[in-house]
Simulated assay, not measured.
Amino acid sequence: MRHILLWACCLLSAPAFAQTCPPEGQSKASLQALKALQFTLPDAAEKQKLAEGLLACLGDPDSELRDGIAYEALTQWMRAGDFGADTLRGMRDKLYAMLDGEDKPGFAHPFAALVLSEVARTDRVKPWMSPEERAAMVDRAAAYVESVRDYRGYIDGEGWRHGVAHGADWLMQLSLNPALERAQLDRILAGVASQALPETGHAYVFGEPGRLARPVLYVAQRGELSEADWQAWFAALPPRLGKLNREDYTNWMARRHDLLAFLTNLYLEADQTDDAKIKALKPAIVAALKQVQ
């Protein structure tokens, strides 16, 4: 009985997702060798086991392990259709657990979101999620984008974090899924709006406004929102900037910079596209630009 209690205690106290990188049986050198072979692994079971192990490397401080090996390998395998629904579902749930856990170094959350964008893509290419799972993922993605407060992009010697951009990529892949319903498209747009001009006053310098614009463009391409819907959505953005606050001038100007960059990215895309549904955004974008002081 005592052994059972100890075993149960260990289960309860164990972290939701163990962080061990490189995975058991691997070294950085062996993973580099695998990358040199373009991540070719003929044995499907071995590939699945390694993929699950590489999830832990998404939070590793070593950018080569995190970005150059784990992310690249997982992306390549998923885009090749190497995993079935059960494996993808298991990976998704482990990535959710990573998002729910602590991330003091700041790498695990944004890279979990980036790989989740690839998981979302697999469901778009060959549906395997239930409508309930898909709706839950939309809410997860939007909530993640809304939660980002670490705005670090690229740092020499550390590599990328890029939380807003990676979250925007996740929303973009979801926005492309034809199985989404109107309520889920609205949730995606709410997530984007939350970071179009972040409350913290961080000035984007790593292309975040352009990445945030992509899910908006793909939602527009679906044609499910009316002209009035778009006018209302864009009109709600400038008031969030508020009047010029001279006591916090730097913060206000940074937020203005972000909003202008976001709207300008959208305008240029709408102006240059041949897609009539995206081009129809131009009047609403122009009206929003005119509202920005």
Rank of each mutant, 00 (worst) to 15 (best):
A213C: 11
T40C: 10
D139M: 10
E224C: 07
A203L: 09
E224M: 13
G68S: 10
F39G: 02
F262K: 00
T40R: 14
E118K: 04
A113F: 04
V115K: 08
P22G: 07
E102C: 08
E269R: 12
H3G: 11
Q26D: 13
K47N: 10
P209R: 03
L171D: 01
K47Y: 09
T40P: 03
K104A: 13
L88S: 10
L58K: 10
R255T: 02
A220T: 07
W230T: 05
H3C: 13
A120C: 01
L281W: 01
P22A: 04
A270Y: 01
L41N: 04
L217D: 06
G167P: 07
K277L: 12
P283H: 05
R187K: 12
D60E: 12
Y218F: 15
Q48E: 14
D62C: 12
K277R: 15
R246C: 05
V216P: 02
P22E: 05
K279A: 15
A18G: 12
A33D: 11
L55P: 08
P105E: 00
V205E: 08
S117Q: 02
I188L: 04
A136S: 12
V164F: 04
S147V: 07
H166D: 05
Y249I: 15
L116D: 00
F262N: 04
L58S: 07
V125E: 13
I188C: 09
E199C: 09
N265R: 11
N177P: 05
L281I: 13
W77S: 02
Y96W: 08
E52C: 09
H162G: 02
E227R: 10
E199R: 14
R222S: 11
R2N: 12
A141V: 09
D156V: 08
R256H: 11
Y204V: 03
P22N: 04
S117E: 09
T20A: 15
T20G: 12
R2Y: 14
L180Y: 01
E132G: 10
A280D: 01
G210W: 07
M1P: 14
Q195K: 09
F234H: 06
R182E: 15
A85N: 09
V205A: 14
A45R: 09
L185H: 11
S27E: 07
I4K: 12
P61S: 08
L95W: 01
E102W: 11
E224Q: 15
T20H: 14
H202I: 11
P215T: 00
A135T: 15
K243L: 14
Q173M: 10
P23I: 03
P131M: 03
E72R: 15
T75H: 11
V192I: 13
F234E: 01
L237W: 00
Y218C: 10
E227D: 13
I285E: 08
A261G: 11
D156R: 14
L5A: 12
D100K: 15
W252C: 06
P215N: 02
K279N: 13
L263D: 02
K49L: 12
A18P: 06
P209G: 02
L12N: 12
L41D: 02
K49H: 08
P23H: 04
L65I: 03
R2F: 03
A18Q: 08
R256Y: 11
E199T: 05
R124C: 09
L114S: 06
Y204S: 03
M1R: 14
D156L: 11
V164W: 01
A196Q: 05
D139N: 14
G191Q: 05
D67T: 03
A254Q: 06
M137P: 06
L281N: 00
A165G: 09
Q221I: 05
